[in-house]
């Protein structure tokens, strides 16, 4: 579980996150939603240790994440940014980077590491193209490979920044299902997602942000019923047979 207390972040002189507090439980997919520029990615990057807090704290099991070393942090939090490089290496090689935080010099993979790599590839559905070069894969396949790497990192907290962007609808649903599977492993999954109906459907815990502040946290449907989406995004919503429709 990740607990954020009174977090404020300023980047380049601009306050992006304002006195933000929220709880992200394990076994759940928490989805951060909000308008562009509301601070979702800044918040995710702060949990990943990439943005420094001006004030407040980010706690994992009551220990302040800003106080742990980079290496220890990598054993607690895995982060998949929205924009990724595509190196010309095999799928297996890329996935194996997930074991990097656990390898001491000279960073040779042990038998146990190889098993974890195989299992992660199996779970992410990339085993059948394990020896292919990353550059030859489609966007959806690459995304799955990166998710396999995150699984391989074997952390209790997984951060995904817009993991379904640039993917077709079937690939989007596959990635969202995978996020559910990861959460079901007892992990805390925090994801930035732009598609609100999908966020409501797949998010166990929906966190709505506006101008760096927390607007709502809880069930997606409750949020819709309170007309918060209408208010923040300036759209009209209705619920038909438990599905959110945006007009």
């Amino acid at each position: 579980m990740i607990t954020i207390k009174n977090l404020s972040i300023t980047l380049d002189g601009e306050r992006i996150i304002r006195n933000f507090s929220a709880v992200f439980p394990e076994n759940q997919v928490s989805v951060l939603i909000g308008k562009n520029g509301c601070g979702k990615t800044t918040l995710l990057r702060a949990i990943a240790g990439l943005n420094k807090a001006e004030s407040g704290s980010i706690l994992w099991k009551n220990s302040d994440l800003s106080a742990v070393s980079v290496k220890k942090h990598a054993k607690i939090v895995a982060f998949l940014p929205q924009s990724r490089e595509v190196p010309s290496v095999s799928v297996r090689s890329l996935v194996s980077h997930g074991r990097f935080p656990y390898l001491e010099f000279p960073r040779k993979l042990r038998k146990a590491d190889r098993e974890i790599i195989s299992n992660a590839m199996e779970m992410a559905g990339v085993s059948r193209f394990a020896e292919r070069n990353m550059t030859t894969l489609s966007g959806g396949q690459r995304q799955k490979v990166y998710i396999a790497m995150v699984l391989c990192q074997d952390t209790p907290v997984v951060l995904l920044d817009e993991p379904a962007t640039y993917l077709d609808i079937s690939q989007q649903l596959e990635v969202l299902e995978m996020a559910k599977k990861i959460a079901a492993m007892g992990k805390t999954v925090i994801m930035v997602h732009h598609d609100i109906p999908q966020a409501v459907k797949y998010g166990d815990n929906v966190v709505l942000m506006d101008e760096g502040e927390l607007v709502y946290q809880g069930s997606g449907m409750e949020m819709v019923k309170k007309s918060l989406i209408d208010k923040i995004f300036g759209v009209k919503t209705k619920i038909i047979e438990d599905n959110l429709i945006i007009e």
Binding site: K75, F79, L80, P81, R84, E85, P101
Partner: peptide, 9 residues
């Protein structure tokens, strides 16, 4: 990339 590398420790 820097972000993923940092995330890997």
């Amino acid at each position: 990339g820097d972000d993923v590398a940092h995330s890997l420790g």
